[in-house]
Design a protein around this nucleic acid. Structure first.
Length: 438
DNA sequence: GAGTTTGAAACT
DNA sequence: CAGTTTCAAACTC
């Protein structure tokens, strides 16, 4: 392994197993507190995972305060199919949540396939050269100790990472992965990903580890304005060949990454909208809220298109002003949140029992949680099943049975209390049958 | 296909 | 923050 790290980085931060194209399952760990999460993360960061790692053990491997780099942990799930999605979760223990670079920790971000239409988030931060933020700048959990972000490059999948306190994008870059990515995505990209050092020499294949992607535009870097959007059309015009410097955390090496954008495809399955009054510039519009322009929709007076870029941009800014996570996938967010014991936004259903598609949770195939404010919810484990079973039981049969008990009590001239008990016992019997089927 | 219901978004 | 209105999708007939 090539020399890297330097004095300002924990060498073990680099010692994750190489990213492969084999499907790996996301490691999901339940943490009761964020502190335990951080402890665990730190322990994992400092735990060499590769027996043949050439990285020497640090003097104090778990004292990250000794290194002037953000602590960083990433979970990666890479599907085997080259053009499908993969997800990266990142936890940043010391993210400054007060900065504009605070990113969405709940987002189970997905890097779309090369055939996907860039979403708003992908079009964020165009001044970062080839790297597009996939997630919105959303405040993190209450303790403000973590944040995550996804970045897309080459219209494919270069890396996942996050913004550090210096507005640099910290990503894990595995050259072997990149090489494989190049091979497998070469039909989708028009420019190759090149990894070079600062003098133009190509980095050796063994140069794996974590890198800091430095914004190509040094002026705009660090301003933290994530509410800048570009349309796919703009990207297509402006980015046929953009460059961004990639340097290692020690700042001694750099890589040039060129990208290509494929703006005219839409990967995510989405129904055509039928908006009539919102101009498709409000979150009522499914296309708009999904982060894509209308295409082949049945909307009237649509402004969610290239021809109305300025208005569209203003609308996006307005939505993000009201809610920084407005364009976040709720289902993905909640799944990720639940995987870590957090809770998402939740629904507020009152009349649907959370068993119809009016309910966000139900539509996303998610069980309601304590974070929901729904009334009469049937969309949670067991009860929903019970309701389903109960609906299949012939209510009439049960009523007849109870009535028979009442008549029986009357014939025997039982007291009211005894009759009531008889009926209740029969009712309990039916309930027991339902419970037994659960 | 028209009308109604529903819950989120937007507004006050 | 709460109440109301607007909106578009889901649903019913």
């Amino acid at each position: 392994m090539a020399e890297r790290g330097g004095a300002n980085i924990c060498p073990h931060v680099h010692s994750f197993p190489p990213l492969t194209r084999e499907k790996t399952r996301l490691k999901r760990v339940s943490f009761t507190t964020m502190s335990s999460l951080m402890n665990e993360l730190n322990a994992q960061q400092c735990r060499p995972t590769s027996p043949d790692s050439e990285t020497p053990p640090p003097t104090d491997p778990c004292t990250h305060t000794a290194y002037d780099v953000p602590e960083f942990y990433t979970e990666v799930s890479v599907p085997m199919a080259p053009s499908t999605d993969f997800s990266v979760f990142s936890i940043h223990p010391h993210q400054d949540m007060s900065s504009a670079a605070a990113l969405d920790p709940f987002n189970n971000s997905t890097i779309q396939s090369p055939l996907s239409q860039p979403t708003y988030a992908e079009c964020l931060k165009p001044q970062l050269g080839q790297h597009y933020l996939l997630t919105g700048p959303t405040p993190g959990p209450s303790d403000g100790s973590s944040a995550a972000a996804m970045w897309i490059s080459e219209g494919t999948y270069l890396s996942g990472g996050m913004v550090d306190s210096h507005q640099h994008v910290v990503v894990d870059v595995d050259s072997q992965w990149i090489e494989r990515g190049l091979i497998e995505t070469s039909s989708h990209v028009t420019h190759q990903v090149l990894c070079e050092d600062g003098r133009g020499s190509q980095l050796p294949p063994s140069q794996t580890g974590y890198w800091t992607l430095v914004p190509n535009d040094g002026v705009s870097a660090g301003k933290g304005d994530h509410n800048i959007f570009e349309t796919p059309h703009q990207l297509q015009l402006a980015s046929s060949r953009h460059e961004g410097r990639v340097q290692t955390a020690d700042g001694r090496s750099a890589a040039l990454v060129h990208r290509a954008v494929r703006p005219d495809c839409d990967f995510r399955p989405r129904k055509a909208c039928h908006c009539t009054r919102s101009r498709c510039l409000k979150l009522y519009c499914d296309c708009f809220s999904s982060g894509v322009m209308c295409s082949s929709c049945n909307c009237i007076n649509c402004h969610n298109n290239i021809e109305n870029e300025s208005q569209r941009r203003e609308a996006i800014k307005s939505c993000l002003g009201r809610n920084p996570s407005a364009f976040r996938s709720r289902s993905a967010a909640q799944k990720f949140a639940e995987s870590r014991g957090w809770h998402g936004k939740g629904c507020s259903c009152r009349h649907s029992g959370c068993l119809k598609k009016y309910c966000d949770c139900y539509e996303a195939n998610i069980k309601c949680t304590s974070s929901c404010r729904c009334v009469g919810c049937c969309n949670y484990d067991n009860l929903g099943r019970a309701a389903e079973l109960a609906s299949t039981v012939k209510v009439e049969t049960v009523c007849q049975s109870l009535l028979a008990q009442a008549l029986h009590a009357e014939r025997r001239s039982l007291s009211a209390a005894a009759a009531e008990r008889l009926i209740l016992e029969q009712f309990g019997h039916h309930l027991a049958q339902i419970v037994k089927k659960l």
